[in-house]
């Protein structure tokens, strides 16, 4: 298996939604154990990239390639990608009535890890992660995301990540709507519950979460392309100066397509 020295390689990725081009040639390489952040103003295609990587059906890839450990990701169904080790923490996860968190996660765990843990065995595993993330015990018997607060949904996403221990965790605006305590817990989960060689791709509008999840690389996306790449200091610069200087340098992020790219 060729790994091209990387875990995930995205080359010239172009994606359309409803005939409108949102990603206009994204290039990105993520190595094992690396933490990357993609920042940028709203409506530049950050979340589109996340969903395209996860394999959302209505997103049409018109050119480019995505490989994970040398294998063509674009040929895989969403579940194959997950079994390959990709995980997306949704910004707005679906509510699934009648399906309890523990039962769903057990099915997911057994599928991804090719195991057959019983309900009891799995509960022990789950309990440990829940304690770490300061999630109440009653949570596991609740219906998936149904009636969850915004913060509970985010924590639930991180819990799923902690259980499935993916090779690549993509966090789509996981920080939004979290208070500082919740944010710290979530960040601690990402830092400590993933294996050493797992990689993380943090998608965010704000620099706040990057104080707790330290990125090795920061990329800025404007108008469907990654326009700048740097280290942690780039995030700080953006925090101080905002995005205007980049918009001027690389052209308007395209306010006219805000609606289309609003992470749905």
């Amino acid at each position: 298996m060729t790994t091209e020295n990387g875990l995930l390689t995205i080359k010239d990725l172009k994606v359309k939604i409803n005939d409108k081009e949102i990603l206009k040639g994204v290039n990105l390489k993520i190595g094992p154990g690396e933490v990357h952040a993609i920042m940028g103003p709203n409506g530049t295609g950050k979340s589109t990239l996340a969903y395209a990587l996860a394999g959302k059906a209505s997103y049409e890839v018109t050119s480019g390639s995505v490989t994970m450990e040398g294998e063509n990701v674009l040929d895989m169904s969403p579940d194959e990608r997950a079994r390959k080790g990709m995980f997306l923490a949704f910004q707005y996860p679906s509510e699934v009535p009648g399906v309890t968190v523990d039962n769903f996660l057990r099915v997911a765990y057994n599928t991804v890890k090719k195991k057959e843990l019983s309900i009891w065995e799995f509960r022990n595993l789950l309990k440990e992660k829940m304690e770490f993330l300061k999630i109440d015990e009653s949570f596991s018997g609740r219906y998936l995301n149904e009636g969850f607060s915004g913060g509970e949904k985010k924590r639930n996403e991180i819990l799923q990540m902690a259980v499935l221990t993916p090779k690549l965790a993509i966090l789509d605006e996981t920080d939004s709507g979290l208070d500082i305590d919740a944010l710290q817990i979530v960040a601690k989960g990402v830092n400590e519950l993933l294996p050493e060689d797992s990689s993380v791709l943090v998608i965010t509008h704000y620099q706040r979460i990057l104080r707790y999840i330290k990125p090795d690389f920061v990329h800025v996306m404007i108008n469907g392309k990654i326009v700048e790449t740097g280290g942690g200091e780039l995030a700080e610069k953006l925090e101080e100066q905002g995005y205007d200087w980049l918009k001027e340098k690389y052209g308007e992020s395209g306010k006219d397509n805000n609606n289309v790219t609003a992470n749905n």
Partner: peptide, 13 residues
Amino acid sequence: EEIFYLMSRGLTK
């Protein structure tokens, strides 16, 4: 959306 969400966790369709 629900199906996609569950599939993104490894479940087959």
